[in-house]
Design a protein around this nucleic acid. Structure first.
Length: 302
DNA sequence: GTAATCACCTGCAGGC
DNA sequence: TGCCTGCAGGTGATTA
C-alpha cells in the first residue's frame, strides 16, 4: 500500500522518465480514475494534450506533475495512488495491464506513462496551483494537507503540538493527514512500536517527549523504507519500472501477528482498529488503563 | 469546529 | 469445484 516512501519512490521515477516531455494524447479507460476531476474524463484529457511536464513534486501521499503554462495559468496533474495505484513507464508495444485506467502518450513517441489501479481508490485530476500556507504553490486539494516529515520545512515541534491538541487516540492522530501527512497504517504501527507507545493512548495525555519520540520514529522508519525502495507485500506496490521494494522484510510490528517481538520476545498482537488492523507488542506497548478495549486477539498472520 | 463512522472497490485466502 | 465471507485500507462525505 503506497504511503510516503512508496510515493516518493514513484515521484523519483517520474522525475527520471517524464520530465520535459510533451503530452500528445491522454486516454481515460475508466471514469472512476478521474472522479476527482469535476469536469470529467474528456475535459481531463483535453486539458493535458499538448502540455509539457515541468516538474514532479509530492506532499505526503499526494504527488503531482507540474505543467507548462496553459490558458488559465500554471496547473498540475494531481495523483493519489490510493490502495493499489501504480504509475508505470512502459514501452508502447507492451500489452496493457488488466487494470490500466489512464494512458499518457508523448509527442516524442517514446515510452508511455500508465496509471494502473486494481482497487480504484486512487485517481488523477488537473488543478490550478494556488498559494499555500507557509509559501509555495500547491494544487488546491493538497493545500489543507500538513507537511510531511521528509519535507525540508517540516516543523517537528509544531507537529507535536498539533498531535497533542487533538482529543483522540494517538494512532488516529498519526493517520490524520491534516496533523502530519504521509503516515499510513504500516508506518504508524512501526513508529508506535519504536516509540513503545500504544495506539489507543489518548493524545491529551501525551507528553512532549513522547510526541517527539513517535514522530521521530515515524521519520526514521520512513527514511529507512525509502532507502529500501519502499514496502511491498504483493504486486500492488511497484516503482515506475514495475519493481517491488524490500522494506517489508524489516517490519517489526505491522503484519507480524503471533511472531515474537524483536525486543522482548512477546508475541505481537493484532487488534481491530477503524475497520482495519493494528499490530503492537503487548509488553513493550502496554494499553492505556482508562480506554475502552474491544480489540481482537485472533490473527490471520501476515 | 471537531471527531467518529461508513461507503467506495477488487482480488485473494479460507471455510464449507 | 464453486460459492460465500472476511480482509486489506486512504479518502471524503455524512453524522453525531
Amino acid at each position: 500500500m503506497p504511503e510516503l516512501p512508496e510515493v516518493e519512490v514513484v515521484r523519483l521515477g517520474l522525475a527520471d522518465h517524464v520530465l520535459d516531455r510533451k503530452i500528445a494524447e491522454v486516454e481515460v479507460a475508466h471514469p472512476r480514475a478521474v472522479r476527482r476531476h469535476a469536469e470529467g474524463g474528456l475535459d481531463f484529457a483535453a486539458r493535458l494534450a499538448g502540455r509539457t511536464i515541468t516538474g514532479a513534486r509530492r506532499r505526503g501521499k499526494y504527488l503531482w506533475l507540474d505543467l507548462d503554462g496553459g490558458a488559465a495559468g500554471d496547473d498540475a496533474v494531481l495523483a493519489h495512488l490510493g490502495m493499489s495505484g501504480q504509475m508505470l513507464v512502459a514501452d508502447a508495444t507492451r500489452p496493457d495491464e488488466k487494470h490500466l485506467r489512464i494512458r499518457f502518450r508523448f509527442a516524442d513517441d517514446g515510452s508511455e506513462l500508465r496509471f494502473v489501479d486494481q482497487r480504484t481508490f486512487g485517481g488523477l485530476s488537473v488543478h490550478p496551483l494556488v498559494p499555500a500556507t507557509g509559501g509555495g504553490l500547491l494544487p488546491g486539494p493538497v493545500a489543507h494537507i500538513a507537511r510531511d516529515p521528509m519535507d525540508p520545512l517540516f516543523d517537528l515541534d509544531a507537529a507535536v503540538a498539533a498531535v497533542r491538541r487533538r482529543r483522540t487516540e494517538l494512532k488516529r492522530a498519526l493517520l490524520d493527514q491534516t496533523v502530519v501527512s504521509g503516515i499510513g497504517n504500516i508506518y504508524a504501527d512501526e513508529a508506535l512500536w519504536r516509540a513503545k507507545l500504544h495506539s489507543l493512548r489518548p493524545t491529551e495525555a501525551l507528553t512532549r517527549a513522547q510526541g517527539r519520540a513517535v514522530l521521530e520514529a515515524a521519520t526514521e522508519v520512513m527514511a529507512e523504507a525509502l532507502r529500501a525502495g519502499g514496502t511491498s507485500f504483493d504486486a500492488l506496490y511497484v516503482n515506475v519500472n514495475g519493481a517491488s521494494g524490500y522494506f517489508d522484510r524489516r517490519l517489526d510490528a505491522y503484519g507480524q501477528a503471533d511472531r515474537p517481538c524483536r525486543r522482548c520476545g512477546t508475541p505481537i498482537r493484532r487488534d481491530a482498529f477503524m475497520n482495519r488492523s493494528s499490530f503492537s507488542c503487548p509488553r513493550c506497548q502496554p494499553r492505556p488503563r482508562h480506554r475502552a478495549t474491544g480489540g481482537i486477539t485472533a490473527s490471520r498472520g501476515a
